[in-house]
Nucleic acid binder design. Structure first.
Lengths: 211, 211
DNA sequence: TTGAAGATGTAACTAAAGTTACGTCCGTTC
DNA sequence: GAACGGACGTAACTTTAGTTACATCTTCAA
C-alpha cells in the first residue's frame, strides 16, 4: 500500500513541506492490527516506523521469559530504541506490540543521516523522540524504584484509560500481571483492595475506573 | 582555564580535524574534584559537558529525597540527559556527581544544532551517546525488575571496581545503601552474606573484592 | 450437554526487604 | 582521656510481594 492512500495529516505539522514530499515518495504505508507483534527482541531493523495513528506497547523481557511493560508510543512518534538499532545495525533490545490498530509509515534506515543534515524539522523530530524515550524510561525507573505495586497498578490503569478513552478497560488480571512483571494472584488481591476503596469496579474481563 | 592546557588526546579519535579545531576554539576546559556536584536536579544547562578524564555518577531522586544511582558516564562521553535539557531548555531531571577527579570540556549549547549539520563525527558522537544512555537506562530497569538486591549489590561492586581499577573499594555501607535506594542494615546483612560466601572481605570503610 | 480452558476469588504459607533498636569499635576533638 | 559521632554487627519484628493450592464461574467447542 502506498503512502498516497494514507491519511498523514497527523504528522503534517511535524515536518517542513520538502520533507513531507520526500516522506510521501519513499515512505511505505502500513497498517497493523491490534495485538500483532511489530518488532521482536533480537530482530534487526531496516525501517524507521513513524506512527500516524494508534498506540504501540514497548516491552522488555529477560532470559527466563519474564516481561515488563516499558512504555507506550503514540502518533507523531517513533521508537527511539529502534533509532538505536538503525544507527549501529544492532538487534532490537525490546519488543513492540500493537496496543490498538496502528497506522504507520516506514522510512528506510539509510535516509536517517541524510535527512539529519538536510532538514531541521527532522532533527527536531529525532531529538524530541530520544528525549521522550529517555523521559519514559526515567518514569519507568521512578515507578520501579520509588513506588509500591499498588501505586504502579493505579498508574498503569490510568495510562490504559488515557489510551483507550474509555473508563471501562477490557483486560484480564493475568495481562496486567505480565505487564507489571508480577503474578496474577497479587494483582487480583490489589485490585480487590482498590475496588473496596471505591476506586474501581471489577467484572469479568473488565475493569471500570470510577471518578 | 583554556582548552590549550588540556590534554584532549582521549577524544582526538572521536572527531574530525575541523571539529577538533572548533572545539579547541570555543570549548572551555574545566577540572572538577572528586565528590563535587556538577549538575543538580532542576538546574538549567548552558553547556554540553564532554568528558576527557574521570567518571561521573548520575543519580535520580524522588520528592521525599530517596535516591537511586542510574549509571556512570566515562571519558569520551557526555550525558544524554544533559543533551535533552540543551534542546528544549528544560531543567535537569538528574544529579551529576564526580565519582573521581574529572577533566572536561564545556561546549556552548547553541553550537549543538549547527555542528549536527556540519560534522558527521558530531552526529555520530551525539547519537552514540543517546544510545549509550538508553542502554544504561535499560540496564538499570533490568536490574530493578529482574534482579534481587544481592545481585544488584554484586553488580554495583563490580562496576565500582571497574571504574577505580582497584579491588579494594573505599566506601561505606551507608553510601552503597543510598546508591541502591536501600537501607544500611539490609546492605550490611547482604555484604556479610557475600563475605561468608568468600566473594569479598569487609573492613572499616573498605570492601575488598576477591578473585 | 458435557467437558476443557480460562478468569477470578481466597486462604495459607514463604521469601525478600525494610525498620527499629541496640551494642561495639574506631577515630577525632576538646 | 573523655566524649562524641560515624561505621558496622546483629537480633527481632513488620511489611510487601510472590507462591501454592483450591474453589467457583463463564464460555465455547465437540
Amino acid at each position: 500500500m502506498s503512502i498516497q492512500t494514507a491519511d498523514f495529516s497527523p504528522i503534517k505539522h511535524l515536518f517542513e513541506p520538502n520533507l513531507l514530499d520526500e516522506i510521501q515518495r519513499v515512505g511505505i504505508h502500513k497498517k497493523v492490527a491490534k495485538g500483532e507483534l511489530m518488532i521482536d527482541i533480537g530482530e534487526s531493523i531496516k525501517h524507521i516506523p513513524l506512527i500516524l495513528d494508534g498506540v504501540i506497547k514497548i516491552v522488555r523481557e529477560d532470559d527466563s521469559g519474564d516481561e515488563l511493560l516499558l512504555y507506550f508510543v503514540e502518533f507523531g512518534n517513533t521508537c527511539a530504541m529502534t533509532l538505536n538499532c538503525c544507527l549501529d545495525q544492532s538487534k532490537s533490545e525490546i519488543r513492540a506490540l500493537c496496543e490498538s490498530d496502528v497506522s504507520l509509515i516506514m522510512i528506510p534506515v539509510n535516509l536517517m543521516d541524510l535527512w539529519l543534515t538536510k532538514y531541521k524539522s527532522w532533527r527536531t523530530f529525532i531529538f524530541e523522540n530520544f528525549q521522550n524515550r529517555l523521559n519514559e524510561m526515567l518514569k519507568a525507573i521512578d515507578a520501579l524504584t520509588f513506588l509500591k505495586l499498588d501505586d504502579r497498578l493505579r498508574n498503569y490503569l490510568e495510562e490504559k484509560v488515557k489510551h483507550t478513552n474509555d473508563n471501562k478497560l477490557h483486560i484480564t488480571h493475568l495481562e496486567i500481571a505480565t505487564d507489571l512483571n508480577s503474578s496474577r494472584v497479587v494483582i487480583s488481591r490489589l485490585l480487590k483492595q482498590l475496588e473496596n476503596e471505591g476506586l474501581l469496579k471489577l467484572g469479568r474481563n473488565t475493569i471500570s475506573l470510577l471518578n
